[in-house]
Write a protein that binds this DNA or RNA. Structure first.
Lengths: 164, 164
DNA sequence: GAATTTACGTCAGCCTTGTTGACTTTCCAA
DNA sequence: TTGGAAAGTCAACAAGGCTGACGTAAATTC
């Protein structure tokens, strides 16, 4: 048992522990995306569409460049996804009133319904995991994930509806 | 504040909390893969190669079909990746002694060196996050992630070097 | 001993989602 | 009024998933 001068355990910082953490992230992320992926496969959409829907739902009226920053893809890549969502009537794009260059993005009713279907499935898995692990574990979960983010993404994360 | 009859807080199960957890997973996973991705880009490899290296390092002598189960891809997809790793001398494939149909996979010295370079970077980020969050948080982190996995993947996860 | 099954490899073709690079249109602001 | 930012679009390409089909060697079963 490794002990610091102060007496706290450092067992959790061994390479073996760190590898377990890495593997946990890998396998958990698979579970995390599995349910929405199954639903998306039945429609003609992919994970990229889900991500766009999620963040537009979360920040209605967000601009394209804001979304680019959050998603970390090129505008060509985002545009392809956005194009299909708009054409299919899931997303509405509105020219900015103040700055006419910007496009503000909103979900239509149809888009909201689809977002709900996807996030219901994803939240169900998250809820089950939270319930199984308990509130204290959930707090630790969030703390470690937050510490793992790149600083600029952490800012985005914290600004998304100051809900904590 | 939502309270159960027993008195524990259920605030952590609100939709808003669940959404924050979903976003935390999304942003954290980006950070999680960022460092190895940067290194891989300089070589001619991708994330798929990293995954194969990781699990071959972890379970030397593992078979192709075992790896297929862990990674959850088709053999055609894995084979493309494995082919280049073998051709480049990072992975060695050995016909099974007991069962000659199986191929057992090992990292060469070169492969071990590359795996180390990648996992050093990934562990450094994980270590920093663990250190920032503390041992109690790490335990919670692992609990929630484990609960989020599909059951069969959880079994794989637990069988990977019974290190806990 | 023959037939079947299993493990692996490979060819061909397709899709999604990422990338660069170049170019246009629109529009704000100095 | 002009320079630059925001957005959209076209073209081409790559990684890494997928399906389906087929071949071979080895083990297993009948």
């Amino acid at each position: 048992m490794v002990q610091t001068p102060g007496g706290e355990s450092l067992l959790f910082l061994t390479d073996e522990q760190l590898r377990k953490g890495i593997e946990a992230m890998f396998f958990a992320y698979r579970g995390f995306t599995a349910d929405p992926d199954r639903i998306l496969a039945t429609m003609d959409y992919g994970r990229a569409h889900h991500r766009a829907l999620h963040f537009i739902h979360r920040s209605p009226g967000t601009t394209v460049s804001n979304l680019l920053g959050i998603l970390g893809v090129t505008k060509q890549s985002l545009n392809r996804v956005l194009r299909t969502l708009i054409d299919d009537g899931h997303v509405r794009s509105e020219k900015g009133r103040k700055d006419g260059r910007e496009r503000h993005l909103y979900l239509t009713e149809k888009g909201e319904a689809m977002e709900k279907q996807l996030s219901d499935a994803q939240r169900a898995r998250m809820r089950a995991a939270y319930r199984a692990a308990g509130p204290a574990a959930v707090q630790g979960f969030r703390q470690v994930l937050e510490a793992m983010m790149d600083p600029d993404l952490r800012d985005y994360y914290n600004r998304l509806r100051e809900g904590s």
